[in-house]
């Protein structure tokens, strides 16, 4: 895939290297900055230096000793995992039906999903705030899981139906001819082939749930269901006179770790998932 003109000269390589370094710096420096802050001691926090002059783990020790953060971390993980699992299972079912089966109301479902994907989330906050208070879901895990599933479903359906469409149609016919019921054709032929797509979708959906701030801050009021992004914005430090910057930075780094891991290990899949769902859907 070399550019037009053939031979790769060292000069061209060098130019690309410079460009690549620029991109990497662009992408990483805000992240490195918050990492740096999280390792700074109280005394050096205000020095404005990009690299800490003194390194310390104190900020991490502090946040893990407060229930405020630990509880929020548990909430974040639990809520995101449950929402992801449900959205992916339901999304897989619907996407399979859309890509493979002929049934009434299919186009409508596609249209509605797209509508929700483009929906301004704030428009749902007001009615959900009122409805959830009425149903006793306000400030509970299900109270957040439900809207997350709803907004993750279109993403899951689009990404997955793009993946499903890549599976050759004839395989399913072949399975039917080999004596499979539609259910067996799905479980034994389509599902194993779709597994990579499902996994990719799960990562994307998890990132979406993990990232959410608007629902989390609007539909929670206590530690019972507050997720980390919200807890971060409420951090005040252990006493009124203490600057929470170090703690916030440390907590921010902690919740960035899963994202970094996903990106490092599944870069290819994430790229494929994002582009297939959005462009080809």
């Amino acid at each position: 895939m070399a550019g037009i003109g053939g031979a790769v000269t060292t000069g061209r390589k060098a130019r690309w290297t410079v460009l690549n370094v620029l991109v990497v710096v662009y992408a990483l420096f805000p992240v490195l900055w918050i990492v740096s802050l999280s390792f700074k001691t109280k005394e050096t926090l205000g020095d404005g230096n990009f690299i800490p002059r003194e390194w310390t783990f104190d900020n991490y020790k502090t946040i893990f000793s407060t229930t405020e953060f630990v509880r929020a971390l548990v909430n974040s993980i639990g809520i995101a995992l449950i929402a992801t699992a449900v959205a992916v299972v339901f999304g897989t079912m619907a996407a399979y039906a859309i890509a493979r089966l002929d049934f009434p109301g299919k186009r409508l479902l596609i249209g509605v999903s797209l509508l929700i994907a483009m929906f301004p989330q704030i428009s749902l906050v007001s009615p959900l705030f009122e409805i959830e208070r009425g149903l006793g879901l306000f400030d509970t895990w299900p109270g957040l899981i439900l809207p997350y599933i709803t907004f993750a479903l279109p993403l899951a359906i689009y990404t997955l139906s793009a993946f499903f469409r890549e599976i050759p149609w004839e395989l399913e016919k072949a399975a039917k001819m080999d004596g499979a019921t539609p259910g067996q054709a799905f479980r034994r032929v389509i599902a194993p082939l779709a597994a990579p797509g499902v996994f990719t979708t799960a990562i994307l959906v998890f990132i979406f749930c993990w990232n959410d701030f608007l629902f989390a801050i609007s539909l929670t009021s206590t530690e019972a269901s507050r997720t980390v992004p919200v807890a971060l914005s409420f951090f005040t430090g252990s006493s009124q006179f203490e600057d929470p910057t170090g703690s916030i930075a440390a907590a921010a780094v902690v919740i960035t770790i899963p994202i970094i891991l996903f990106v490092l290990f599944f870069q290819r899949r994430i790229v494929a998932g994002l582009t297939s769902g959005a462009v080809k859907g």
């Binding site: 070399a2 790769v8 690309w16 992240v31 980390v228 992004p229 971060l232 994430i270």
Partner: peptide, 29 residues
């Protein structure tokens, strides 16, 4: 790019994946 395509793609995914609130705090500080 002729070199380091994996590294470039991986690092560009970080801004996409990172929690917006975290990035916002980084900018704020």
């Amino acid at each position: 790019t002729l070199v380091g395509r994996g590294i470039v793609r991986t690092s560009t995914l970080i801004p996409y994946g990172i929690v917006t609130v975290v990035a916002a705090f980084s900018w704020r500080y």
